[in-house]
């Protein structure tokens, strides 16, 4: 039953790629989300406008379409940029090679940054204003207020949303096999085609995702417990 026909190593490598891709995309979208939330809550009207346009457009367009759009266009733009730089000076030959992995991280980070922006915006607003004012009154710099007061409390409100987004990112990485990355889906497809046991190998890929989901559920529960330290829950 559990005979991987020598494709175990390939599927394992694909799984590692999937995990790396998801984690890196999470980091990128986390940072974009923090920036986006700050922009949407900024005093400047232009910044708020940019934030709103970004989240509205990204969340209105399917991720696969954005992925194809960014993956193919980014390559062309980078080529044009390097040609232009080459034409400026002849001594150095500029080149910006873009492999599917990097563009996958950029694309997924850019897309899910919009979802994180909304998550963080709500969480920032949930932190009582008086606490921030008190911190300012103590003479903390804005960065220190963010690090010591705003961020730790915001995380508590944001965690369920972060967990949700993480699950979505993890599953969205399967799309990256469509732009040529050899992730776990691609490896399973290749193994299935070679052995004529597609059903079995695709099921293996599905099982890998299920295990990853179960593990991340456990980690999330631990994190939620950590950030809920000192919070009293209403006893029902």
């Amino acid at each position: 039953m559990f005979d991987l026909a020598g494709y175990g190593q390939q599927i394992f490598n694909g799984t590692v790629t999937t995990i790396e891709l998801s984690v890196l995309s999470l980091v990128v979208s986390f940072v974009i989300g923090l920036l986006g939330a700050s922009a949407k809550l900024a005093r400047h009207r232009a910044l708020r406008g940019i934030g709103t346009v970004y989240t509205t457009i990204i969340r209105g367009v399917p991720d696969l379409v954005l992925m194809l759009l960014i993956f193919y266009s980014l390559q062309i733009w980078l080529n044009e940029l390097s040609d232009w730089l080459d034409s400026l000076q002849n001594s150095i030959d500029f080149e910006f090679p873009l492999d599917p992995f990097t563009s996958g991280v950029i694309t997924l980070g850019f897309i899910y940054g919009a979802y994180f922006t909304e998550t963080f915006r709500g969480a920032f607003l949930a932190v009582p204003k008086g606490q921030l004012e008190a911190a300012r009154a103590y003479g903390m710099s804005p960065m220190l207020v963010f690090r010591r007061i705003l961020f730790p409390q915001m995380m508590r409100y944001a965690l369920p949303g972060i967990g949700n987004n993480w699950q979505v990112i993890l599953k969205a990485t399967a799309l990256v096999s469509l732009i040529g990355l050899s992730d776990v889906v691609k490896a399973a497809q290749a193994a299935g085609e070679a052995t004529f046991r597609t059903f079995f190998f695709i099921s293996v890929a599905g099982a890998v995702y299920l295990v990853l989901t179960i593990i991340s559920n456990g980690v999330l529960m631990l994190l939620e417990r950590k950030y809920a330290v000192g919070v009293r829950k209403a006893a029902l």
Binding site: K171, A172, V185, G192, F199, S203, A205, G206, Y209, T213
Partner: peptide, 23 residues
């Protein structure tokens, strides 16, 4: 719901489109 929410839709589509027909 656990099986279908825990795996990507693309994998489900592949399983049904290419996998089942191969049985």
């Amino acid at each position: 719901t656990f099986l279908f929410r825990g795996t990507p839709l693309y994998v489900q589509l592949l399983l049904i489109y290419t996998g089942i027909y191969g049985l």
